Computed example of a mutant assay.
Amino acid sequence: MSVSAAAEPKRPRAPARERTVGTRVAGQPAFVLHSYPYKETSLIVDMLTRDYGRVALIAKGAKRPHSQLRGVLQTFQPLSASWTGKNELRTLTDAEWVGGMLPLEKTALLCGFYLNELLVKLLARDDAHPDLFNHYVSTLNQLAHNEPAPIVLRKFERALLKETGVAADLARCADTRERVRAEVVYVVDPERGPRPERAADQAPRVSGKTLLDMEREDYQDAATQAQSKQLMRFLLAHHLGGAPLNTRQILIDLMQL
């Protein structure tokens, strides 16, 4: 059934202080997710921004030795970014390092690259998610302060699925809408949610307690940590359409995260 234009939900708009006239954006909080060469001296930079979501920007001349952008466009560093253009690929006009965050090191650095890969593969461009942006900042800070990586990653994975609208309510059975019971074993349909296990099920089996713990972001129990890891791996694989996550495989090999 068609929906009239008047009935369509309006997309989030950036605050007025972050917008300028026409197609210019100035002073937008941002992080580099990924970049790759463009022509001889430039880069295409995939950025996560607070009020505009994931955007693709051409950083002209950024590969030149004396470009002021060369040392600024680094991952996991908070930036203030400005750009122009109205097409999907815009032009970066300025990027300044904001500071105030500890660098990621060792395993935390690899976890950061895993977060970035998830965002690049699961977030549509130009779709604002300010709460997810704030969660990303918080997650980087937790990793930098050596908080337990498995717990930090599970919370972010769950937040990402919620923000993209594909996370089922883990506290309610999909068929009956009854509350999940801690002592019952379930499987989770990626599209619908939990239901009691059946003999022929191929999906990971998880206890009701694990599902309830995940809903309240309580990962202190060792069984919850182990079962939530398998469940999130299964759910992400489904929503990624089977596309591999390179950094996750490296993490599995190194730390079994």
Rank of each mutant, 00 (worst) to 15 (best):
W97K: 13
E217N: 14
H135I: 15
F31W: 03
S4V: 12
R198E: 07
G193E: 01
L43N: 07
L236R: 00
R54A: 08
Q28P: 03
H135T: 15
A149Q: 08
Q202D: 06
L92P: 01
Q220T: 13
L122I: 03
V187H: 01
L48T: 03
T49P: 02
K209W: 10
L33W: 05
Q77I: 11
K60Q: 15
I252N: 14
I151W: 07
G165K: 10
E215R: 11
V120I: 15
R177Q: 15
L170G: 04
R192G: 00
G112L: 09
D126T: 07
S228K: 00
S80D: 11
P15C: 10
P148D: 06
A203L: 09
W97H: 14
Q249C: 07
R24P: 01
G99P: 01
G53N: 07
A203I: 00
L236T: 03
Q249P: 02
H238W: 09
L43Y: 08
E40H: 12
A128C: 05
A59D: 05
R17K: 15
P150H: 06
S228D: 03
A62H: 07
Q225V: 12
L240V: 05
K121P: 02
G61S: 08
Q77M: 09
G165N: 03
V25S: 06
T107A: 15
Q68T: 13
K10P: 02
K155T: 09
A16L: 10
P150K: 11
T20Y: 12
I151C: 11
A223W: 11
A168F: 00
S138W: 12
K106C: 13
L69F: 11
D201E: 00
R248V: 04
P78D: 10
L231T: 02
G71P: 04
L73K: 06
I44W: 10
K10N: 11
P150R: 04
A14F: 00
A16K: 13
E215G: 04
K10T: 13
Q28D: 13
A167V: 01
F113E: 01
M1G: 12
I250H: 09
M101S: 10
L92S: 07
E163A: 14
P65F: 05
F113K: 04
R11P: 06
T93H: 06
N141S: 13
E8V: 14
R17F: 14
R177S: 13
Y114E: 02
A243G: 04
I252V: 15
F156M: 06
T84N: 13
D175L: 06
D221G: 05
P12A: 13
D253L: 11
D201T: 00
R24A: 13
A5L: 14
P204Q: 06
H66A: 12
R179G: 10
G85P: 00
E40K: 10
L235I: 00
A159D: 10
E8K: 15
S67F: 02
D127Y: 04
R179V: 07
R54L: 06
K155G: 14
H145V: 08
A199I: 12
V72S: 11
S82G: 03
R181P: 01
L102H: 12
L118I: 04
L245W: 02
D51T: 07
L118G: 00
D221V: 09
T23Y: 15
A108T: 00
G85Q: 05
V21S: 15
L245C: 01
H129K: 08
L79A: 01
L119K: 01
S80F: 00
G53W: 11
L123C: 06
H135F: 15
